[in-house]
Design a protein around this nucleic acid. Structure first.
Lengths: 388, 388
DNA sequence: GTGAAAGCGCTAACAT
DNA sequence: ATGTTAGCGCTTTCAC
């Protein structure tokens, strides 16, 4: 059998059987590789590599030939081979709860933009609120050697879970990647992560204080899963404001729950019908506020005349509601940007005081619109006032 | 020099210099590899591989040892090496205009879910409306050998651009990947892409017809970049409905523009002040409708008493507006799901009638809410009625 | 059931 | 300025 006339390695296709393409010169299906390009341009593979990476001098004429060859062959470099050979995979991972939730979407946008700016691609996945999935995704991104893995949003306050997370963080760190905690608390000083937070507690404090300043004393706190760090901190800020002003906390006025519109709507409706008295509502986020607003609308409770309503996050819906929602603004997109910036500088550049465990804290501030005002004398009380 | 006593290949680190870790047994920093695991478990690398992939019989005892070794070493497989060695990269790419736009976000969610269901990770990037960026991203995903690249949303109607796109599609196809056109027209029968569309023209036709049925004759078409396929089709449907009912088209009533809230707001305000007469507005999408609604609110024009308003897409804001927006519903998430399903089955499974160039067309339907009703006698006309 | 060895496509020394 | 070559870490025949 003559093997000289064949190309160096006409390996059979993945099927294990050679295709009907007898022994033609043009390899029917195989992708072009550096070797092919090199041969065609009459140079070595090293030169081809140098042309692609423009990190080394190459004669203009040679470069032309190589580029022509690449074009003619429809050559597309294999990122896997490249990554394997040493270069970074140029990837950052981002793990969010839910892509269609503006809170996550804005942060994701920041991450994506900063990644793109740094010439990297973005791996995105959604946990749908499942911590197990979160862990699994971190592993997957580690396998792909992502330069950084950004974990977004509140986390469950589970002991074992946090330990596992810490383990993963260390593994990542050992491999030169960073786990970024974006909008969630640190795992401890000894765990090699980097953090980008915003002042959850402070924002909540500020907005409750705003309500109090208007004259409200009976403020309903609505929504936010008690197990979630984000919700916990918001509630804490709320309580602190109450305390500071010497207003007694009423357990009946603390109604945690899901971060969902449905919850806001349902619970608000119930409370309006048979709950305690209150003159203002602090929804744990804008989504919950939207649900609550609808319940009030349906019950004929006017905002802000009969009831004040405020939210948290300042996502677009806050401006779409009528009246527009007074809420707490978080620099969402900026957080995403900083997340990758902080992760990449802490390991990519020279070790200028490499802050293995730094935490960047961004500020929040309240945005006053029209959904909150002073309480009026007449509280609608129970019953579906003005309804039906 | 003795080379026998050393480990098979103690290559210097990426720095080019060996670390201070003289010749100890435990490699200080290097990541564990199959070789390490194999040595530790006293087996060959082949066995380690078989244990990981569970695609081949391995003695229970051996498997235990290997798994223990992996655990002890904190071994994490290298996806790049794996992909290079033949396996698929287990990745699908998705290219959208803007992550925070619900239209894209919902589709992205579908893609992500389906990808995850198929044990794949999702590369996401945003073009921010720039076709060049789109092309660049396709290339990047090709480099990473994504199993499928989903291109989402309307495309510009540029000749050269489409040709370039076709070229990329062919390259991808040659490599066994598929380019999926999600919500945009085919590139031609000869271009190897797969498509998932929805009936843009039909939805527009239906909703304009709905307006006409209510008694409207002077309907303003607002927004939608004329260069975008999506917008073009919607306008076409609108015109067809008019025609069918024998209503003469008035160029002044066709006001294309950006797909943005700002455009909807600004142009609507202008038109209300000094435009032609009309009794209903068909906004090219819900975002534009939201802007238009605000302009009407500011001008004291009541919906639907003074003016009817309808949109397109049925994204969440449609239900947040007051009155709620009558609009056209698109199966956004489903489109995303089908996009990856269709792409992966067309090349991954057995060639059961492999539809290299199929196009799946999903239906749309109008959702009637409260923003459209019969026209009233009194048209507000020019001037900022009831304002100031 | 397990091992040996040949690549996958690319980069980065080290020569020339 | 350009060529040679040795891997990067894994999968996968082909032997045993």
């Amino acid at each position: 059998m003559d093997r000289m006339s064949r190309q160096s390695s006409t390996a059979p296709g993945p099927d294990g059987e050679v295709q009907g393409d007898g022994q033609g010169e043009r390899s029917g299906q195989r992708r072009a590789t550096v070797v092919d390009v090199a041969r065609r341009a009459g140079v070595s593979t090293a030169t081809v590599s140098r042309v692609m990476n423009r990190n080394y001098p190459v004669a203009a004429a040679t470069r032309e030939r190589v580029e022509a060859a690449m074009r003619e062959l429809g050559y597309v470099v294999n990122a896997h081979a490249r990554a394997l050979a040493g270069a970074s995979g140029r990837t950052v991972g981002i793990i969010v709860g839910e892509l269609i939730d503006p809170f996550y979407a804005y942060i994701a946008r920041g991450v994506e933009r900063e990644a793109t700016a740094g010439d990297r691609l973005c791996l995105v996945c959604c946990t749908q609120g499942d911590p197990q999935r979160e862990l699994a995704f971190i592993e997957l991104m580690h396998e792909r050697r992502a330069d950084a893995v950004v974990l977004v949003g509140g986390s469950v306050e589970d002991r074992a879970y946090k330990a596992e997370l810490a383990r993963r963080a260390s593994e990542l760190d050992a491999g030169g990647s960073k786990l970024v905690l974006c909008g969630r608390p640190s795992l401890g000083e000894d765990v090699p992560t980097v953090g980008v937070e915003y002042d959850n507690e402070g924002g909540a404090f500020a907005i409750t204080d705003h309500l109090i300043t208007q004259g409200h004393e009976r403020i309903l706190y609505l929504g936010g899963p008690p197990g979630l760090s984000t919700a916990r901190d918001r509630l804490a800020g709320h309580r602190r404001a109450l305390e500071l002003r010497g207003i007694r906390r009423d357990p009946l006025l603390e109604q945690p729950g899901a971060f969902s519109r449905a919850f806001g709507h349902r619970r608000m409706a119930e409370l309006l019908r048979e709950g305690p008295e209150f003159t203002a509502v602090f929804a744990a986020n804008d989504i919950v506020a939207a649900g609550a607003a609808q319940a009030m609308e349906e019950a004929g409770v006017r905002i802000p005349q009969d009831m004040s309503l405020v939210g948290y996050d300042d996502i677009p819906v806050a401006q779409e509601l009528r009246p527009r929602l007074t809420t707490v603004r978080i620099p969402l997109e900026e957080m995403g940007r900083q997340a990758v910036r902080v992760a990449l500088n802490g390991g990519d550049e020279d070790d200028w005081r490499a802050p293995t465990t730094g935490t960047l804290r961004l500020g929040t501030h309240i945005v006053v619109r029209e959904s909150a005002g002073p309480p009026r004398g007449g509280f609608p009380g129970s019953g579906r006032a003005r309804r039906g």
